[in-house]
Computed example of a mutant assay.
Amino acid sequence: MNQRMYFLDNLRALVIFLVVVMHVSLCYMKYAPSWWFVIDPAQSMFFTYVVMLIDVPIMAIMFFLAGYFALPSLQKHGMHRFWTGKLRRIVIPWVIGVLFLSPPAMYMILLSRGKAPGYMEFWAGQFWTSMFSQSVFWFLGILTLFYLILSGFYRISPRLQSPPRMSRMPSPLFPILFITATAGIFLGMNQFFPVDTWISRYYLIVFQPLRLGVYLLYFWLGILAWKRNWFTRQGYTPKLFPWLVVCLVSAVVYLTFKGMMAPRGNEFPIQLGNALAFNVFAYSTLMTGVALFRRAINNSGGFWKSFSASSYGIYLFHSLAVYYGAYYLLNFKASPFIKAPILLICSVLSCWVLTVALKKVKVIARIL
């Protein structure tokens, strides 16, 4: 990768760190989902707001970056080598994660509430029936689906097979049209599903119906951005200040509408405002992140080199570190503002060290 593009890897590493922050915060937020893995009695609204804000843009950015890097990889390596790499890096971790790392995560729901049977009894019974989940590995399943869609279109589309030829600046209307499309999908699905619904009954694919189409559009946006040479020296780069202003304003608006969804979520004007604010916030956060990292964190040395290289392993392993760490902190009588940082630091560092250690094993290094 060209030196000037390291900021995208660094942005992805920060987003993964924010995923861990969100999962830690869920343990200490007020009004946590009743099914959350560990709910500590030490709670604060601060962590509720942290969860609400981080939840919006992180996966949109992850799917955008996946799309941005997918097409050049497919063009460079060809279909066979592309899928050999994805099998090793995405599909195998997905399968192993669902079979061996997701069950102990779901087991924590019962264990933390004092209702757990023996683990093998749980794995053979409840996990595959009433408590099936892919935990954090749902992302890899959806990503595999999007790669399959891209591969199908790649076979029949000469435009996808051709390299980018010239830089194209997006029209001023483009963000409006894109946000309108994603908000329309979000709002349309909200007519059939509550905003935070998860569907897991199909086993192979676990998803949020309001967001699946939105994420597919962000994956496509990443492909489009690469084809049009966005973020290169000659191409389009978003301006930091205006997008930061939009990001901050939309965050406040989103929190306002999100707070009204629980008591008034069946009212169409509230659904419309929530859908628009959600998607303006997601898009503006992506643009703000790209602008900020391209300007200030476009290097591949020191801290960022190690953290970026280990971020995928941190994503794969962090759930058990967070949930079991939160479980052992239940009896620690302290403020959530003490417990949450302890849990966050210990979870990130332990997964970082584990990833570095596992990378010394040649077979595992090819995955991580």
Rank of each mutant, 00 (worst) to 15 (best):
V95W: 04
L87E: 10
L99Q: 09
K115V: 02
F100H: 06
G114W: 01
V98T: 12
R81T: 10
R113N: 09
M79F: 10
F82T: 01
T129F: 12
L111K: 14
V95K: 02
L74P: 00
V98R: 08
L74N: 00
Y119E: 08
L99M: 14
P104F: 10
M79R: 09
I96M: 12
T129N: 13
S73G: 12
L74V: 00
F82E: 01
W94T: 10
M120G: 14
P117A: 04
G97E: 07
P104L: 06
F127K: 01
Y107T: 01
P93Q: 07
Q75G: 02
Y119S: 07
W83P: 00
I90H: 02
F122N: 04
H80I: 15
M108C: 14
M106A: 14
G114P: 00
E121L: 10
A124D: 12
F127Y: 14
R113F: 03
I109L: 05
L111F: 15
I96V: 15
H77M: 06
V91S: 10
Y119P: 01
V91C: 11
W94F: 15
Y119N: 06
T84K: 15
P103F: 11
W123P: 04
G114K: 01
K115G: 02
S112W: 03
P117F: 09
S112Q: 02
G118L: 13
G85N: 14
R88S: 11
I109R: 11
V95G: 03
F82A: 01
